[in-house]
């Protein structure tokens, strides 16, 4: 066996193992790291096929950006309690059927496809760029525009205005005893920073209530 074949099977094995790990892992973060392994192995396969630009793109966008993004989201959001995301039997059968159908169509199509590269057709970055910015410039630009609009939309939807500025908007009964709203905490922190050096006193050496919570022994 040539070294190319050995390398192909090694990376293919990693890719398949990663994909299985993605589906079978019980913790989401392990699933993400399995996906990372798969994406990495696929980049190596692209490289083995001599498609350097595609390999770099795969590493950059999927291996780096997408994985980090998913990790951020997973770590920042509250995890579902253990066992809460078990799917019901009916859903499982439907999903299995759809997957089998999709896989079948994919297998038939790929089996019939002709993967020969036309002679003299190079796939380096320069020729890719000249195609992308001449023949396909309109779809390329439209895709960019659509993604920008999606990004702006996501920001508008996710944005919560004036969280820090208007604590008084809260209904009076919504307050948990012994806690501060964000606005009060910010005011207390500002008071602390502005007034006290290290000794918990105002500049005129008077005790400064309000900057230290009563529970922590601050002056009432």
């Amino acid at each position: 066996m040539s070294s190319d074949v050995v390398m192909f099977y090694t990376y293919a094995l990693v890719a398949v193992a990663g994909a299985l790990g993605l589906v079978l892992a019980s913790r989401l973060i392990h699933a993400v790291m399995s996906l990372f392994a798969t994406l990495f192995a696929i980049a190596a396969l692209y490289l083995l096929l001599g498609s350097e630009f595609l390999a770099a793109m795969q590493l950059f966008v999927y291996g780096g950006a997408i994985t980090v993004l998913v990790l951020f989201v997973l770590i920042l959001t509250r995890p579902a309690p253990e066992g809460a995301d078990r799917t019901r039997k009916g859903t499982m059968w439907t999903a299995g059927g759809v997957c089998a159908l999709f896989f079948g169509v994919l297998a038939i199509t790929l089996g019939r496809a002709d993967f020969r590269v036309a002679a003299g057709q190079s796939h380096d970055a320069a020729s890719l760029a000249s195609i992308l910015f001449s023949r396909y410039v309109l779809p390329f630009e439209i895709a960019g525009l659509v993604l920008t609009i999606a990004l702006i939309g996501a920001i508008v939807l996710a944005r919560e205005d004036d969280v820090l500025d208007t604590p008084s908007d809260l209904p009076e009964g919504a307050r948990v005893p012994g806690t501060m709203t964000l606005g009060e905490a910010a005011a207390a922190a500002a008071t602390y920073v502005k007034e006290e050096a290290a000794e918990g006193l105002a500049p005129d050496a008077a005790p400064s209530p309000g900057s230290v919570p009563a529970e922590a022994g601050g002056a009432e």
Binding site: I29, E52, A56, F60, G63, I75
Partner: peptide, 24 residues
């Protein structure tokens, strides 16, 4: 590589993954 510096940046983009996983 024909895409040398881009490949370097692509590989360097993997570095935060290890750090994030270590931190978490």
């Amino acid at each position: 590589f024909d895409v040398g510096i881009f490949m370097v940046f692509a590989i360097a983009a993997l570095f935060p993954v290890g750090i994030l996983v270590a931190g978490w």
